[in-house]
Design a protein around this nucleic acid. Structure first.
Lengths: 336, 336
DNA sequence: CTGAAAGCGCTTACAG
DNA sequence: CTGAAAGCGCTTACAG
């Protein structure tokens, strides 16, 4: 950055004070229009660039927001959170802010280390994108700046959070399966893995309850171990007619597996996913799923964190962003 | 950031000067070990956080690097550049730096606007990730800070660049096809679209030349229009026995298309890709392809830009990162 | 080993 | 309308 041209340089070139230059460049009152114009012109000619660090130090604001993503959600196959981050960066731009990505390494999460963006005062707020451990949630709570959980929440922590309405989305898509005549519907997911998976399960469960159907444990199919690694799904003796998967990738894997086993989707089994990500359209057949509105999540998150930066006492609680069912080819209407 | 605890606060609590606190916290000489220890302890207790803006203003360094990705490379299906960005962020962390993502909107690219990270002096260097227009390359050249092109280059611009060795990778994989007995090999890609696509084409072409094979125009198959949107590939009358695709996604699409047309891959036609991204393993069959080493690209880029921040006169020219052929199931040995 | 002074580039009252 | 003074939090010589 080598402090190239400063306001002072412009000032002395024009024989005015740097205060006047500051006012002119910021369109503040107290400079004649003609002088303001002249200053702006010269600033342009000299290639002046604003020094945001100086402003930061005065205002105590960095104009950055940190986005923290736990490392384990950034595998080669997963780009959902990176996409959310991208949308956040775009939204922040509208507020004159920038987004700094912070991948939370497993070690740092384990050792409860503060992220550098925090300890070096690099950001005015932090968005934690993706579930972190209970312990680390406490660490986040100890950070003295506006913070927000995105795509997960914790009952015990009084931290604002923004999540897809997982419960309602799964509830709706299960209702749809039931409308299509399905009576033996399984849920695929490790319900102790993340709150998203758990809430989607509960929406599925509510739908069953409302329709007077009985839930049996054989209908709950585990898809991953406690480290989040996918495991082979064990099917019950009697094959269900439909599967509600906790996400599209799992639905995609399930379709592959079913095809390999000789089942045709949707003729033999119907499958629905959640997220509407790449896997939804890559699957064969293409998946009926619940779309997660990434842009809306980013927009809401950024608006919220900006609110909280301006007013640290603002509290929004848990905010739900609605999903929307996308109808494709993986569900079959069956006879009642 | 509300300038919570400052060095001055620590100093007055301990009855020393802020200079001493600064020295102690930065492990500089001139403080007794006992005092240093005490200062660090109190700093910890008071929840002191370093104010990097103040340091920035003194040193004229922001400790941020901007990563600029043209909007058009960030579609829903493409996450390659986001992954590269992620690796860059991780590498920057090792140097005490942060990465700021800057999506270059089509308007800004069109209107040749400087990115805000530049005009607000937010970064010490910029990595341009993904080909920008000729005109915009000039705009980048006018920026007065260390800069680097990643994953593309421009002959006329004397800007350092880091690219996968596209030429050599395509050359090698085409050699492999020829070794497998193929004599009628097509290249799939719009060679006027990006330099990567063009260089891969040239590697393919060199392989043909070296093996005394004649290239005919019917073997060059266009895959996208001038805006980068995929178009339906038009096949030549006589079907080639193998296809060198400019990337895995196009190879994936091609496989789908060939399957739909009744051709079996690799029995009827062999197909190879480039990148080794998600599409390579998603394709049916899985693709033989050239792996792009994302981590290595990020590591090299970060090392280079750090060098250039320290020494602005450093010039590396065009640096190639080697790819590696990954052998899978999309190529068949045929009779010579 | 310790600290008073000056300065980084900018902005915010306040005085003229 | 214009500008001198003070200060944001820190660091870098330099003096004791």
């Amino acid at each position: 950055m080598k402090s190239s041209v400063t306001m002072k340089d412009i000032a002395s070139k024009l024989g005015v004070s740097s205060v006047t230059v500051s006012k002119a460049l910021n369109d503040k009152e107290g400079v004649s229009d003609s002088l303001k114009l002249k200053i702006k012109k010269v600033a342009g000619e000299m290639g002046y660039r604003f020094n945001s660090a100086a402003k930061s130090i005065k205002e105590g604001l960095s104009y950055n927001i940190g986005v923290m993503i736990p490392q384990r959600f950034t595998g080669l196959q997963e780009s959902f959170y990176l996409r959310v981050y991208q949308q956040i960066a775009i939204q922040l731009d509208h507020y004159g802010y920038f987004g700094i990505l912070n991948i939370l390494s497993s070690e740092d999460e384990e050792e409860l280390n503060f992220p550098r963006v925090y300890s070096e005062n690099k950001v005015d707020g932090i968005i934690v994108l993706g579930q972190v451990s209970k312990k680390y949630i406490e660490t986040v709570q100890n950070m003295e700046l506006p913070k927000l959980f995105l795509d997960f929440y914790d009952e015990h922590a009084a931290i604002d959070s923004i999540v897809t309405d997982n419960f309602y989305g799964a509830y709706e898509i299960t209702n749809y399966l039931i409308q299509c005549g399905h009576r033996d519907i399984a849920y695929v997911g490790n319900i102790y893995s993340t709150s998203s998976i758990q809430d989607r399960y509960l929406g599925y469960y509510k739908s069953l309850l409302e329709h007077g159907m009985v839930f049996e444990n054989r209908l709950l199919l585990n898809d991953r171990d406690e480290h989040g690694r996918y495991i082979d799904i064990e099917f019950p003796e009697k094959m269900p007619t439909a599967f509600v998967c906790n996400c599209d990738q799992v639905a995609y894997n399930l379709c592959e597996r079913l095809n390999a086993m000789g089942y045709r989707v949707p003729d033999d089994c119907s499958v629905v996913g959640f997220d509407n990500d790449v896997y939804a359209t890559l699957a064969n057949p293409q998946l009926t799923t619940v779309e997660v509105d990434i842009e809306q999540m980013a927009r809401t998150s950024v608006k919220t964190i900006m609110d909280k930066v301006a007013n640290p006492n603002r509290h929004i609680g848990r905010l739900l962003v609605h999903g929307k069912i996308i109808y494709r080819d993986s569900v079959k209407k069956i006879n009642l």
